[in-house]
């Protein structure tokens, strides 16, 4: 069984059908469609981080670097006034950011714990300052994307990225595939090693595994997916700017992942939904929304020790127990 927890199954069966129907209810309201699209994109990003932090035990504070790179690589390699092919560029961006992750991972994964947090942060900040000081990439203003890619496969154009509803479905589809990918990965032979290394690295070495390689592969995969999310974000809003690379982006994603339930993967969607939902509602109520938001998050982390996902799982288990 791919979804082994009841809460997980329940969530997937409720969330995805609902998300599939959502644009029909919001037909007239483009604002909400866009908002939900952003949540999907962020969920992909948070999910890739959740895999690294919660599943592999690799705590990084530099994941935003790949999110930003996804966008910047696109503006770097795509011609400015010509529509490129979405699928080909998805491949390019994932391949290039995977290469970057491979090189950086080689250095970063020599450390662990607090040192790893510092090194990942240092790399992310270096990237941040490079792009925010660079004239070629518009400094703090970033770069506009004038022409969005076209999406034809073998000459068949299925949808249009300029259409918010189409874009919404693309992101939903991507999110579903990311979830499926991680679920299959975790259940695989490779996943067995990921679990073993997370739980007891020393023992895994003593059994004859080179744990560095497994960590590196995980890091590369998660980084490439983080970059894909950044690429989608860039396409949605039509620009990149350095704030995507900022450490607050990494930090926010980490909060979302913890809120959702670390290592639960689907919890990334829950965390992002709740965080963004709170953000949206509090923003409209008061100017000092960040203050209340912080308070609420502290409260939620205290109440839901294992995140929202863990809370739901316990709830269902308790109900079954009676």
């Amino acid at each position: 069984m791919l979804l082994n927890k009841r809460a997980e199954r329940l969530f997937v069966w409720i969330f995805f059908p609902l998300a599939l129907l959502m644009p029909m209810f919001l037909e007239q309201n483009e604002y909400y469609v866009n908002k939900l699209t952003t949540i999907m994109i962020l969920s992909i990003f948070v999910m890739s981080l959740d895999y690294l932090v919660g599943k592999c035990g690799l705590i990084t504070l530099g994941h935003a670097m790949f999110y930003g790179l996804g966008g910047y690589i696109f503006v770097m390699i795509a011609p400015e006034y010509e529509a490129v092919n979405f699928w080909i560029y998805t491949f390019y961006i994932c391949a290039i950011s995977a290469t970057v992750a491979f090189v950086i991972g080689f250095l970063v994964l020599r450390t662990n714990g607090i040192y790893m947090i510092m090194i990942t942060l240092a790399f992310a900040q270096m990237t941040f300052y490079y792009f925010s000081d660079s004239i070629d990439f518009g400094g703090t203003d970033g770069v506009f994307v004038y022409v969005k890619p076209e999406t034809s496969i073998f000459g068949l154009s299925l949808f249009d990225l300029d259409n918010p509803t189409h874009f919404y479905y693309l992101c939903l589809f991507s999110l579903f595939n990311t979830l499926l990918f991680f679920k299959v990965l975790i259940r695989s032979r490779f996943g067995r090693l990921v679990d073993a290394i997370h739980e007891n690295p020393g023992r895994t070495v003593a059994l004859g595994y080179n744990i560095f390689i497994y960590r590196l592969v995980s890091y590369v995969v998660a980084s490439a997916l983080g970059a894909y999310a950044g690429y989608l974000f860039t396409l949605q809003y039509g620009f990149v700017n350095p704030s995507m690379l900022s450490w607050t982006t990494s930090g926010t994603a980490l909060v979302m992942s913890i809120l959702g339930g670390m290592g639960s993967i689907y919890g990334a969607i829950l965390g992002t939904l709740v965080y963004e939902g709170l953000h949206y509602s509090l923003e409209h109520l008061t100017e000092h929304w960040l203050l209340f938001m912080g308070g609420l998050i502290i409260l939620m982390v205290m109440v839901f020790k294992k995140g929202i996902a863990g809370f739901l799982e316990d709830l269902l288990e308790k109900r079954d127990g009676k």
Partner: peptide, 27 residues
């Protein structure tokens, strides 16, 4: 020094898998 959250079988499977290969199989 064991994987205390896993079953006994799973503990040994990690050890066996090194000989059987496929540890880089994602799917």
């Amino acid at each position: 020094n064991i994987y205390s959250n896993s079953t006994c079988l799973e503990n040994c499977s990690v050890a066996v898998q090194r000989l059987m290969g496929g540890s880089f199989n994602f799917f």
